[in-house]
């Protein structure tokens, strides 16, 4: 009984903290200002998720080749024209192929990049849960079937020992102590 009351206390505490979090979230407002000159940082922010075919596996924003420098200049021009990040990415994908995008477009075959992990983990998860439940059922069967029939009372007690007394005692320290003593 006492235990339950204490849990409720913590529940209150959690709720309070949750409210606090929500409040802080709501008060947080960040606004982005747009300026005229296109800076290197703005260019890099777009280039970061592009990969030019000349230097494989190196993002466009850090690639030192002349070709990549040209690509970045083009991004700068397009940003100055007021194009958005998505529009620029689209342009590069059209011009040089989808292979330049770090984040492949969600269409056609590349959909499997999103579909497979989601479906795979979901199906895997369901199978896994079913499997574990099955194991659990067999565990119950084993506990009831084996212990009383095939064992002497003494060893039956030792089988049950890890299940029952630890549940009851619930004291980690004593368990560790016992174990340490046992190892001596």
């Amino acid at each position: 009984m006492k235990e339950r009351l204490r849990i409720t206390d913590y529940g209150l505490c959690f709720t309070f903290c949750g409210l606090l979090l929500t409040l802080l979230f709501l008060t947080a407002g960040v606004a982005m200002a747009q300026t005229g000159e296109v800076t290197d940082d703005e260019v890099n922010a777009v280039a970061k998720d592009l990969f030019c075919p000349v230097c494989e596996s190196t993002p466009l924003d850090v690639c030192p080749t002349k070709a990549c420098a040209d690509w970045r200049e083009l991004i700068r021009t397009q940003l100055a024209e007021g194009k958005t990040r998505a529009e620029i990415h689209d342009y590069f994908a059209r011009q040089y192929g989808d292979g330049v995008l770090a984040d492949p477009p969600k269409r056609g075959f590349s959909l499997i990049l999103w579909a497979l992990p989601v479906i795979g983990v979901a199906i895997g998860g369901v199978l896994f849960v079913r499997y574990v439940r099955n194991l659990r059922r067999e565990g119950d069967a084993a506990a009831t079937a084996v212990v009383p029939t095939t064992l002497s009372p003494a060893s039956a007690a030792s089988v049950l020992q890890p299940i029952v007394p630890l549940e009851a005692s619930g004291d980690y320290v004593s368990r560790v102590e016992e174990e340490l003593l046992a190892r001596k």
Binding site: A141, A142, A145, V146, T150, A154, S155, V159
Partner: peptide, 18 residues
């Protein structure tokens, strides 16, 4: 040692059931 025996028995006795 008791428990050791138990797990051995378990694995043999229960095999047909599974």
């Amino acid at each position: 040692t008791d428990t050791m025996k138990v797990s051995e028995i378990e694995s043999t006795e229960l095999a047909p059931a599974v």
